[in-house]
Amino acid sequence: MFKILSKTMLTPNICAMDVKAPRVAAAAKPGQFLIVRTGEDGERIPLTISDYDNEKGSVTIVTQGIGASTSAILDLEVGDCFQDVAGPLGNPSDFMAMSKEELAGERYVFLAGGVGTAPVYPQAKWLHENGIPVDVIIGARNKDLLIYADKMKEVCDNLYLCTDDGSFGFHGLVTAQLEAVCAERGYTHMVAIGPMIMMKFATLTAKKLGLKATVSLNTLMVDGTGMCGACRVSIGGKMKFACVDGPEFNGYEVDFDEAMRRQRQYLPQEKEALERYKSQKAK
């Protein structure tokens, strides 16, 4: 059992939790994810790691209530426990394996979409601490859905905030903001984390601007250790497993349309489960 040490509602439907998981905290690196379960029969839910504290033995996860299982996570309180926290899973961010020489001269820009902002934090933080120039562009539908703005400011050189409806910051998509500042900032590498559709268009924009493109794929998963293949994606025409070969891939090689289609495989069942969860909760 893995105890929840703190819980902060970032928006009415997104929460950050510090969870006691000392071994995961000690091993976690930027770019990795973990799998949690609530309850004895709970679904295995992959979540990105948005921070880790080896001293406290805790990891920070950020969850948006979308389906039944993520809603159940939001309903947990401080002192409650996750049945399971397994990880860290997946490969650390590519830049972790790069030498100082290789990183010198790189200027990173992160495009963070919605709840995908959370996993950008440890990556930007690592680069920032290692003296690599890094900017972050956070996008959300509206002002109330913007998360991590204050935290992110501490770990990057320039932070840009965008909303689709113009209720805060730049009025428009993260890709438009990127186009607006790219030349001036001299980026070399774009990393996008967010909804699949956003990562698709981020990659197209990066291509237009001549930037390297990295994306972090949030596919369906069951075990998360390479066993089931639910997360398989086409990368440069080859079958890869997001859980063990990723989650980061070269955006130019990802078949996003296929990935989006595969993500929707259980949509009717997910809707049903959410209805069931809501009606059980109402009782």
């Binding site: 679904e43 295995r44 069951v222 075990d223 066993m227 089931c228 293949g229 639910a230 398989r232 994606v233 086409s234 079958m239 296929e258 289609r261 595969r262 929707r264 495989q265």
Partner: peptide
């Protein structure tokens, strides 16, 4: 093989047995 509705036996059985 990546069409919706194609599973490895591992995925199909894991969903059913373990989950």
């Amino acid at each position: 093989e990546n069409l919706n509705g194609v599973f490895s036996a591992n995925e199909f059985l894991t969903r059913n047995n373990l989950m």
